[in-house]
Design a protein around this nucleic acid. Structure first.
Lengths: 340, 340
DNA sequence: GCCGTTTTTGGGAGCGCTCTCACACTTATA
DNA sequence: TATAAGTGTGAGAGCGCTCCCAAAAACGGC
């Protein structure tokens, strides 16, 4: 049977209130009492009951992390694991616990209610990234603090953390233009994901800036998976691209496989640039030029932002965009000169 | 301000107790009262406060999932994501929430206390797989129900779910023997991980059964990562193996890269078999023969076992070993005949 | 030493729920 | 018709904590 505050108080020869003060770091406790109570606490390894604390205090020190599992394949991508890691790490050092919801579509309705109203969660991080997420809509009308991973396309009042997808894609495509590529294709993410939209925008901006007209047939939409990238590339081949920008490394790797299968070479025949810089990117042959985004840091900052927000609800909307970085390797033809 | 049971009772014209009965599915409520209360609940979208419920009932309907993050690289492997997915899915359908702890070493002490004593968690799934995990030791002396993912090497009273690592490795190695390989190397996992030990045992058993003497220099230990497999393979090459069994696909892929880099062919010169059947296994060239283990199912079954255990603490120790399956592809030379 | 302050402490109320118990009311049994 | 045995309901206590308030102790300045 676990001990209670009252038990500790009895052993330490003081009162429940004082023990509570010691645990919560209240200043108004004499040094003598504090050390005595601390001794008892560590001797019996006391841990206050969080349910009781949550009930009495009105907050629990737990934060929710909601990840959509619509495509279960999405977990094959290292994005979510890294995000979870970032969130969890930051929460650990801020003394906050993480509750994870992998929101499967059929449970979504229940998930929403659980997240919003059960009183266990002080706030929530939503890793949705859909342009029209019903969870986000539901949260907007509630008082529960929340932070989005991935910017919100319209509502300026929503806090979010994202990486600079547009600029990353822009740099990547610009680089290929500079390398002399003329027919640069784009394997885009799904249209209902904001990151996909932003990367497509960067692609278009780069072409436009260089006065290259956009060829609609050179842009195809895929689902961020390897097979998706593979299929998209096969489809693109008929239009004879000499370069391709894929909105994720996973798709880029699929695209490279498709290119090789048709007997063409990367980068000599077709240059390939991905997005994310997953570990695999540097290991495939040829190694993949890609746009690095700090996924784990996004998670950490989202957690930080949310915790600040919970402690200080009056904060102005936080819109944090982390920089991306073009990592040049072999697949874009910049390192090894073209052996045509 | 969220509503309480009392509010619902007032609106429905009944008492707090009756509303509580309706919510918890008590039989002794008249049909009329039940529907009336249900109507109110769904109309105002009432969600009972879980902290209060936890405090009053002594359990919360939350289960912990502890994952060691010692090696952060471990998350590059799809194992944990799939495990999380399995646990989470099963918990969703059993109406239980999941609290995730990525236990970083420096926080481990705190994690242990949080998990064991904070009163929020009804039970915990430990995905440790170390042969000597201090968390497991700590839990053994406590009354908190827990289930291990990965069998426990010594204590028969501990509940666990695991896949049949020994048999999987045994089948894999036996297969290579049958294909005529004479010098079969083994890239093993770390010695302090039980899965690594079991797979090494399967390797040894297969050799022994076929009367092949174990060559110690053909067995090296790596860390389940791709670079680890790559380095291990480089080291093995001096002993001229004609086949290699890697204890994970990730290591196998690293090994294949090492082999190719030295100008040798897979499977013609060296056959390779991995373990796990990650999605990448079927996509690399040559496609990887591997041992499939049902990771997501392990997670689901662990969750199920734990929930049963919480509801019925008197259960006898559950030791569930799920079967593994050899998936034959190109890298072992069984599909395409050896072009020597 | 006395009075006003400040620091430290203890007790009470109450967070929103569950669970036990007692009471009212119905139905079956003798 | 009286008694036993359900069925449905409400009130009360209490889960372990925080927070507020008032009392006690310690401190300072005259």
């Amino acid at each position: 049977m676990p001990l209670t505050l009252e038990d500790i108080a009895r052993i330490a020869g003081t009162s429940r209130s004082t023990v509570s003060r010691v645990i919560n770091g209240d200043q108004n406790v004499s040094e003598a009492t504090r050390t005595k109570v601390m001794d008892v606490i560590s001797k019996v390894n006391f841990q206050p009951n969080l349910a009781a604390r949550g009930l009495a205090a009105g907050h629990t020190g737990i934060l929710g992390l909601v990840i959509p599992m619509g495509v279960s394949a999405i977990f094959a991508d290292p994005f979510f694991p890294l995000l979870i890691q970032g969130v969890s790490g930051q929460c650990n050092s801020r003394d906050v616990s993480v509750m994870l919801w992998l929101a499967e579509p059929e449970f979504e309705r229940r998930t929403i209610n659980n997240v919003l109203y059960n009183g266990l969660i002080d706030g929530v991080i939503i890793a949705s990234m859909l342009t029209d997420d019903s969870l986000v809509d539901a949260l907007r009308n509630k008082s529960l603090p929340f932070v989005l991973v991935g910017r919100h396309p319209t509502d300026e009042h929503i806090h979010y953390v994202d990486s600079d997808n547009r600029s990353g894609a822009y740099q990547a495509v610009l680089h290929m233009v500079r390398m002399g590529r003329k027919r640069i294709a784009c394997i885009n993410g799904p249209a209902n994901m904001i990151a996909g939209m932003d990367r497509a925008r960067g692609y278009r901006d780069a072409l436009k800036e260089r006065g290259i007209s956009l060829q609609p047939e050179l842009v195809v939409e895929a689902d961020f998976t390897d097979p998706g990238g593979y299929a998209a590339m096969k489809q693109l081949m008929q239009y004879r691209p000499d370069a391709v920008f894929a909105a994720s490394d996973t798709m880029a790797i699929g695209a490279v496989r498709a290119i090789h299968e048709l007997g063409l070479r990367v980068p000599e025949d077709i240059a390939v640039v991905g997005f994310d810089d997953i570990p695999m990117a540097s290991r495939i042959t040829p190694s993949l030029t890609t746009v690095r985004q700090p996924i784990s840091r996004i998670g950490a900052i989202a957690a930080d932002t949310l915790i600040d927000l919970i402690e200080n609800p009056s904060d102005r909307p936080q819109h944090i965009i982390l920089p991306t970085e073009l990592v040049i390797r072999e697949s874009c033809g910049a390192i090894h000169p073209v052996r045509s």
